[in-house]
């Protein structure tokens, strides 16, 4: 239960094609993350799967059965929205019970399921409150509760953490991951935050302008980005790029090095530069270095590095950590 197949799916709004023909296979039980910059079509894709938008052409199958023209309610999917979309006039209990009520369940069954969900999500103490009286994290849990009671074939999450503060976001990230471990239900998760993608996903789908740039596990994408866009998008801080002469030396149009793969030295190295800002975080040190050719590099170094503003520094990287791209931005080798 819970596989989703997209075949030659396209979507146009008027004359604007936001998703050119797209194929994707989401396996049962997988945690799939759609990631990409804003406007890349990831939310549209999710809404197509949900049935909140019609595909312009192509087909969507859920559990191998064509669902392209089935109404959202009948697809057996549950969705958690960015704004949580809780019903403000209903208590937490009624919010969670709503899909069950719509499905026509007996009141006793509804109560049992709602209580169980509230227990799992630690909502029992707030069950009779209205959404307006809850904190952001609690609202988020209610939204998830409303999704899990239906025992859907798959969960769809549309940037669910973007309205939470940083600390809470880390917590909820863990909770959603745990939920996935427990339920083993397929989850499709949309985010623009590559950290969320890396930490939660079994499979990441990187999107740009409606086109899938690469599909793979977090580490695959990190180690073997298919192109410059994926290389730059996955990993934090972002990969540093050099082109021109420095790249030609390595037989590439552009080369890229991750900040954590750069070693610094005061004496010698591959690239010479000047430290602009040094951020000493204790555990790590981030150096923002301006190279002699004018390009900017970010370096992630250990906490003991004693380099400061204005210091000259030489940076170098192991050959296996230098990513090479051709003029079409595709990875070489």
């Amino acid at each position: 239960m819970g596989s989703i197949t997209l075949e030659n799916v396209t979507k146009s709004f008027g004359d604007v094609e936001v998703i050119p023909p797209l194929n994707l296979e989401i396996n049962e039980g997988e945690f799939v993350v759609f990631v990409g910059p804003s406007g890349c079509g990831k939310s549209t894709l999710l809404r197509l799967i949900a049935g909140l938008e019609d595909v312009s052409s192509g087909s969507i199958a859920i559990d191998r059965e064509d669902a392209t023209s089935i109404r959202p309610a009948r697809r057996g999917l549950a969705m958690v929205f960015q704004s949580y979309a809780l019903y403000p006039h209903m208590s937490v209990r009624k919010n969670i019970a709503f899909p069950l009520k719509m499905a026509g369940l007996e009141q006793a069954d509804i109560d049992k399921k709602v209580d169980a969900a509230a227990n799992i999500l630690n909502l029992s103490d707030y069950i009779d409150r209205k959404p307006g009286q809850l904190s952001g994290g609690q609202r988020q849990r209610v939204a998830i509760g409303r999704a899990i009671v239906r025992e859907p074939k798959a969960f769809l999450f549309d940037e669910p953490l973007s309205n939470l503060d940083a600390a809470l976001r880390v917590n909820m990230r863990l909770e959603i991951s745990e939920l996935h471990q427990d339920l083993k239900t397929t989850m499709v998760y949309v985010t623009h935050d590559q950290v969320e993608a890396m930490t939660m996903a079994d499979k990441i789908v990187v999107l740009r302008a409606g086109v899938i740039e690469q599909v793979g596990s977090p580490l695959e994408l990190y180690r073997k980005p298919a192109n410059k866009f994926v290389a730059g998008f996955i990993g934090s801080p972002n990969m540093n790029f050099l082109s021109g002469e420095a790249a030609q030396k390595h037989g590439a149009h552009t080369i890229g090095v991750r900040p954590e793969h750069l070693a610094c030295s005061r004496e010698s190295g591959m690239w010479k530069g000047t430290v602009g800002v040094a951020e000493h975080l204790g555990s790590d040190t981030f150096l923002y270095v301006t190279l002699n050719d004018g390009s900017n590099f970010t370096v992630r170094s250990d906490g003991n590095v004693d380099l400061n503003h204005g210091d000259t520094v030489y940076l170098s990287a192991e050959p296996e950590n230098i990513y090479r791209f051709d003029e079409n931005e595709q990875a070489i080798g």
């Binding site: 709004f13 049935g51 909140l52 938008e53 019609d54 109404r71 959202p72």
Partner: peptide
């Protein structure tokens, strides 16, 4: 933004 169903 909606489906044909809701547009009808």
């Amino acid at each position: 933004m909606a489906t044909d169903h809701s547009r009808i």
